[in-house]
Nucleic acid binder design. Sequence first.
DNA 1: TTTTGAGTTGTTCGA
DNA 2: GTCGAACAACTCAAA
Length: 477
Amino acid sequence: MSNTRTIMWFRQDLRLQDNPALANAVACGEILPLYILDDVNPGEWKMGAASRWWLHESLSSLNESLGNKLWVLKGDPALLLPEFIAAHAITNIVWNRGYEPWQVNRDIQLKTNLSELCAVDSFNGAMLWEPWTNLKGDGTPYRVFTPYYKNSIKTPPERTIVNVKPQAIDICECTQPANKIDSLDLIPPVQWHLSLAQHWQPGEAGAFVQLEKFIDDGLANYKTGRDFPSLNTVSRLSPHLHFGEISPNQVWLTAMGQSANAPEHEIEHFQRELAWREFSYYLLYHFPSIPNQNLHSQFDRFPWLEDPQSLQRWQAGETGFPLVDAGMRELWQTGYMHNRVRMIVGSFLVKNMLNHWLDGARWFWDCLVDADLASNSAGWQWVAGSGADASPYFRVFNPHTQSLKFDGAGEYIKKYVPELKGLSGKDLHDPSSAPAIVLAGAGITLDKDYPRAMLDLKQTRERALEAYATIRKPKIS
DNA sequence: TTTTGAGTTGTTCGA
DNA sequence: GTCGAACAACTCAAA
């Protein structure tokens, strides 16, 4: 019988299965499972409102899986942990690594300091390939996805045995307050989160339900189906992955094992999308300033406009462009937005409105249940054109064209912008241009029941192209 | 060092 | 209605 007592420090790995740090801790002997809500170190990017709701639910679920023995603290781990280690006769502490800049810095420091008090070990629980692997021949990081991906898949993800949870976890019996998770104050005072609860099942079990659902309904038609927001063809695993309720290894290997149920190229396409998540983490790790600064510095000179009123209309889903508004309202109501629609509302904000991408990133950060510093930063910079593998300057999404192409029947629009359900065809996608008699028949008065289009697409597109031209590097003659 | 080909997700215009 | 080219120039990766 060993005399170890190991802190299993849960962070973004709120699961029992395929959890390397947990497996290691359990193998050593008695464990003390702990979560610390750290609002000190993340600075500006501390968790947003939707994420907090999710975290509350996910911690509750994890706590239940651990027989109600999860410890919960709030504050700076650098201050809390030494005291905690001493108070509970701890011999070891383990965790799975994080990759956000503030986490990396915090953990390096912690590892040094805690090593004087007990044994410390960290593991890879969140990545198929950790960011310091897969460098170019010259030792510098990739900035383009395709070569990064091609190089990455030469090495299969390290773990091949997943979906296993440790048997017979020996958990330290310590008394703690009954309402421990509530004490973190993760639930907003406004009852806004109630609508989130209708759409999601946070926690490890919920993650598996979602994975199965995707395998059954989405994977076989993933490549094309993923473009249509009214279809249930995307995985919707992002929040589960963000909080580590399921690991990318588990998802990757499960998908790979479906060749009897889905064509190979569909599976591969999904794996590519998982790799985009990896690439975002990779970029954030190697270019830690991307949450706030343009990866391509010529964008520092970009003539952004500041117009709080327009920004507010975009946020509220009252731009007068049905697909944009549907997306922004989906975000508000469900804490999520379909991928294609994210690109469209992003392009609208950044290119048609000429609003700085950071405002979009901040709004998403607060509203998304899958808010992830890596994916959010990389995604917004991609849309703006300032990031890696960026969208070319001339790619300005036309919300009407996109709407007709990807929500032709308007199912998605009608779901989130129900005041337009009396319209159909072209009029539904562009109510501002609909004949008066059609609008009257549908019971819509523009600017009363639904806003008139807040800008002119053609004119703002040209304005955007001009703005992009101003930051071109001067030609050497 | 130089060269070559490629680079997630689009739109518009003119034939 | 359909189709291909143009939309800049640059940077990246690899040979």
